[in-house]
Amino acid sequence: MGAKAAKDPVPRASIPLNPVFNWSVGNWMEVFYDGLREGKIMGSKCPACGRVSLPPRMICERCFVKAEEWVELPSTATVQACTTASVKVAENGDLVDLDAPEIIAMVKHDGADTCIAARLEGKEAAVGTKVEAVIDTGAENVLDLLASYKAVG
């Protein structure tokens, strides 16, 4: 080895397969999606500490108690963090340039203690901005029900 001239490139191999999964969401997320279909935002509440999870969680991670109470939350939220995306993820996992920048934010609904990662309409946002949810109750895919957020007013 060592002193030899540059080695041939090591051969490569791939296989055109795409294993498919179907994740059951469980009864807590089911309530969330059912709520969105009716235009409602449903969060789960811990009976011990009052922490409200949105999206809902069956167990309160702080108390290890079943979050069996439900609260309907207002559609208004506050931006906790935001970023202007110049890229998106391509199918092969590369980051490719977007034609027009998009805003992605962590928003916290009024009355909730956890965040939702969401797309913001418009070109600008800042931490602290008040926004409201845009719900597309007719969306085919449940993941599109909570379509985006837009600035309040």
Binding site: M29, A85, I104, V127
Partner: peptide, 23 residues
């Protein structure tokens, strides 16, 4: 989270880190 974030294609290691930086 496969029951929500995974297939929404908004979060990834870089975008999440950008949100962390923003906060």
């Amino acid at each position: 989270d496969p029951t929500f974030d995974r297939q929404r294609w908004l979060l990834n290691e870089v975008s999440a880190a950008a949100l962390q930086a923003s906060a």
